[in-house]
Design a protein around this nucleic acid. Sequence first.
DNA 1: TAACTTTGCGTAATCAATTACGCAATTACA
DNA 2: TGTAATTGCGTAATTGATTACGCAAAGTTA
Lengths: 317, 317
Amino acid sequence: MDFFERTGKMAIGSRLRVLTETLTRDAASIYGLYGVDIKPKWFPVFYSLTDEQPKSVTAIAREIGQSHPSVSTIVKEMIKTRLIEEVDDKADRRCTLITLTEYGKSLSQELIAQLRDVERAVEQISSECDNDLWAAIADWEKALGRKSILERVKEIKEQREHSEVEIVEYQPQYKKAFYELNRKWIELYWELEPHDIEVMENPDIHILEKGGHIFVALYNGFPVGVCALCPMPEGSAYDFELAKLAVNNSIQRKGIGRRLCDAVINKARELGGRILFLESNTRLKPAIALYRKLGFKELPEYHPAYARGDIQMELSL
Amino acid sequence: MDFFERTGKMAIGSRLRVLTETLTRDAASIYGLYGVDIKPKWFPVFYSLTDEQPKSVTAIAREIGQSHPSVSTIVKEMIKTRLIEEVDDKADRRCTLITLTEYGKSLSQELIAQLRDVERAVEQISSECDNDLWAAIADWEKALGRKSILERVKEIKEQREHSEVEIVEYQPQYKKAFYELNRKWIELYWELEPHDIEVMENPDIHILEKGGHIFVALYNGFPVGVCALCPMPEGSAYDFELAKLAVNNSIQRKGIGRRLCDAVINKARELGGRILFLESNTRLKPAIALYRKLGFKELPEYHPAYARGDIQMELSL
DNA sequence: TAACTTTGCGTAATCAATTACGCAATTACA
DNA sequence: TGTAATTGCGTAATTGATTACGCAAAGTTA
């Protein structure tokens, strides 16, 4: 299959499927060759029982690596052909133990002796190959047992995205980005108000010069998210407020919001803050979910401060 | 899977299936990870179209190694999501050419870039393995392309069976076997007649001493089949007759009858015979089929000689 | 010992692939 | 040029597997 040389290894699953399908197709004919009336899919169950120990359906399923409903169906089919039979488990009445019948035993011996031919065919193929498929499968089973491919991809993806996104402190060159990123999401739900515009256009005056900080998320050097840490006015119960969190809509799911908040929280701790406050709106579901995940607790009573607010939260630092 | 270490390589198909299933299960979650709404099974079709060449359903199927109905279904699903579209083939109105839409093109680039993570995960796994699964699959594809596993098993089986069965000339120690093997099949359909018993009990007198030969098939040293070459009486149109073919019922499908007949035919040639005659009964379907396969032609008219006969055949040597 | 959790396993629904089949268009060929 | 064979491809049925779910039995725990 030249095709898979083009796709690269990301398609190993598809490639395996094609090979498996090819082998399975032949398997049916091979059983036919021996005039044995058993289906290829019975083989693992059949073989598992050749050690002559009665086993429950789930035990077989675990042993052969298939789901129990699959084994359940196979068992039903095999009972019909009198290869196996059910015995009640005296100790545990949930189980029905499965054993080979006498006929099953004799057929299994015969069949397995005949299937040495298949083994030889496999070895013949192996001898024509530079790489050992059988051993490679075993290696993969072990490797996947340690850590699934899903977990591996997750980790690699996170690492990559982490290195793609850099959180930096605000610099004048990000002034426009700070304005635009905030404008965009506000306008999605509400309208910009004069007060918004004043703060967003002059973060230096309203945030930085008051002792606040702004963090900018750079994606390949390009600003895609911002978040501010603002000191609360004198006399407030809180030291700092987390505000102006905005992330570019087209770059979601990369944990950018999370990392911006982390930066703000760390800076707040660094500055000796003890409780971090924020005000938001419950319509912003992903943001609220993020705040909760970070440990923010909703205040029992809401004391409006912003026009857009309907929820206030706090986090003990 | 310790289980497959027990079964041996005859179960390589089942083992592959389990591994494939594991990978496929994760594949769906991996696509979810990237927030892309495409199914894993679409991937080969999708990838095949990234070279931006319009392709017919069957062309794609051939390329990716799947059946055309499978591709047909996938194409239908993908059209619904506007990833691909159909274009009429001006040259051949049977075909509908498939291409990526603009949206499909942009998504494919993005997706394939993201799936580099999967590639890296595969490479990570490979680095933990002593054996290269990817290369091993490629080797197997090539080996199976040269000769399918079914063909290989067939050959190996035939070789083994050939060496298990030995055709030898009659010796006095096979006297009882000659009688019993013939008695068994005759009694399945008819009753033994005095004439039968006389010939079968004294093959020396009635066959060998008249210049005939008897061949015995030994299965692991044990006689399981016989066949006789009898000279025809003076004045007959034929030189020899093939007769008394009998094979143990429990050892079928190993070509024993065939090999006994071959031995008889060769001996007839060796003795300078030109036409070989036989008489049988159409109820013995497998035997008649064998005779035909060997080149025997039915005589247009039947001149009864045996009580059990209803067909006569001849073979030019 | 009562209530909750876990385990065994059967049934139903679903999924991804296949074969079988049939129709329509094209190609081969006599 | 007409007929037969081949090719493209869609639909239906089948296969071998899965997940979801639910019931009953067993185990756990307060």
